[in-house]
Amino acid sequence: MKSLALIFSNSRYFAPAWVFTSLNIWFGTWAIYIPTVKEKLGIDKADLGIALFCLSLGVFTIFPMASKIINKLGVGKATWIGVLCTTCAAMLPLLAPNYHLLMGSLFLFGSCTGFTDISMNTLVTEIEKEDKQNFMSAAHGFFSLGGILVGLGSFLIPIIGNPLLHMGVTVVVVLLINVAFYKKYVHIVAAPVEKEPFSLKLFKPLLLLGIIGFVSMGSEGAIIDWSGLYLKEVTLAPEVLIGSGFLAFSITMTLGRFLGDGISAKIGSVKIVGMGALIAISGYAMVLSGQTMLAIIGFAFNGLGFSVMVPELFRIGGNVRGVDSAQGVSFIAGTGYAGFLIGPVILGFMAEEFSLTHSFYLLLACAVLVLGITFFLYQNRK
């Protein structure tokens, strides 16, 4: 909890952490109004799927060029510009008067959120280097906290009764808090890195980190999308407990991220990712027991195990020798997002072809793969 106390006691650390919270508030508030937009524009599920793909396309389009923009602007200024752009873009999908403009607005929203995501993770990496303080995991905990705030804000929907007003109030409040703190980081630029010519030796650690990012974020997305159905169809959980797996996963995910920095400082980034993989493997063993309460506890273990992986990957990726921090973070973000979007789809195909239980065996195998990669990385660091 040392990093959490650090964030709340020093505005230099709270400022970037609030950007993490802001990003999830913007995205989450849009997400709760997806059914409303679908109904308003009279589109079917297939059309909605294409529109949401445009959002993902926007995210992936910005990744290849993000590091160059960040290095040119300076990481602090890039983060602030990302905040301003996302603030404006968050309103556009709810304002779209027709389907084609919805697709365009979601593409722009995805581009802005993707750019802000890379900027803020690079910013935290640079502050950690400057101050020799670990708070990346806690910053990601603030991202999870944003989802909780969105959930609480959803209770205002019947009171406000207007999606645009709800989003408008949310955008203004979030922006005002950012305005109060952005001067704490806007001047920060990335430390110069002595770049090395491209080689397989240089690329190998990034590739391995990318595989872990793909697998871990893919597993997160899969559990978020499929845990409820697993409890309903496999463990035959009563209706009141169907959402318990996701709730347990979310709580331990947030808690783990607030605790992760202190553990990482003691044992190192590679070891904590390996430890997270072991915890996730234990979680899958309980999930695959087929017993409702054990499965719910297993999903809690999954949340705890995966909670530390992504923040540590950004930390490691931003410190790869011969690669500037923005490029490292962009690569990890790109592979991670690919896993988050593709993972649930792969699981769905497996569940349809074989069974949902087989899908979770695949997730277990992925966690074992992560453990093997971390062992390899640790051996190479000696």
Rank of each mutant, 00 (worst) to 15 (best):
K2W: 08
L4Y: 13
S9A: 15
N10E: 13
R12F: 00
Y13V: 07
F14H: 07
A15H: 09
P16W: 10
W18C: 09
F20C: 11
L23S: 11
N24K: 00
W26T: 08
W26K: 05
W30P: 14
A31P: 06
A31M: 09
I34Y: 09
T36V: 11
K38D: 14
E39C: 04
D47F: 11
C54L: 00
T61Y: 04
I70D: 05
I70K: 04
G76R: 08
T79L: 09
T79Y: 08
W80K: 05
L84E: 08
C85L: 15
T87L: 01
M91F: 01
P93Y: 04
P93D: 13
L95Y: 15
L95R: 13
L95S: 14
N98R: 10
Y99N: 05
S119H: 06
T122E: 04
D131E: 15
D131Y: 12
Q133S: 15
M136A: 02
A139I: 04
G141C: 14
F143L: 03
L145W: 02
V150K: 02
S154E: 10
I157Q: 03
I159P: 00
G168S: 12
T170R: 11
A180V: 05
A180P: 11
F181D: 04
I188H: 13
I188D: 13
E196I: 15
F198K: 12
F198Q: 14
F198M: 06
L200D: 12
K201N: 09
K201G: 13
K201L: 12
K201I: 07
L202D: 10
L202E: 08
P205N: 13
L207D: 00
L209Q: 07
G210A: 14
I211L: 01
I211D: 04
I212G: 04
S216W: 01
S216E: 03
G218A: 03
G218R: 01
A222Q: 02
L229R: 09
E233W: 04
P238I: 06
P238W: 08
V240G: 02
I242N: 09
G245Y: 15
F246W: 09
F249I: 08
F249Q: 12
L255Q: 12
L259M: 10
G260Y: 02
A265H: 10
S269M: 02
I272P: 07
I272L: 00
A277C: 13
L278Y: 11
I281T: 01
I281M: 05
I281L: 06
M286Q: 07
V287N: 07
I296Y: 06
E312D: 11
L313N: 07
L313R: 05
G322H: 12
D324G: 00
S325T: 01
G328H: 06
Y337R: 03
L341M: 13
G343Q: 05
P344M: 01
P344R: 01
G348I: 02
E353T: 08
S359I: 03
A365N: 01
A365K: 03
C366N: 12
V368N: 04
V368R: 03
L369H: 05
L369C: 06
Y378N: 09
N380Y: 02
N380F: 01
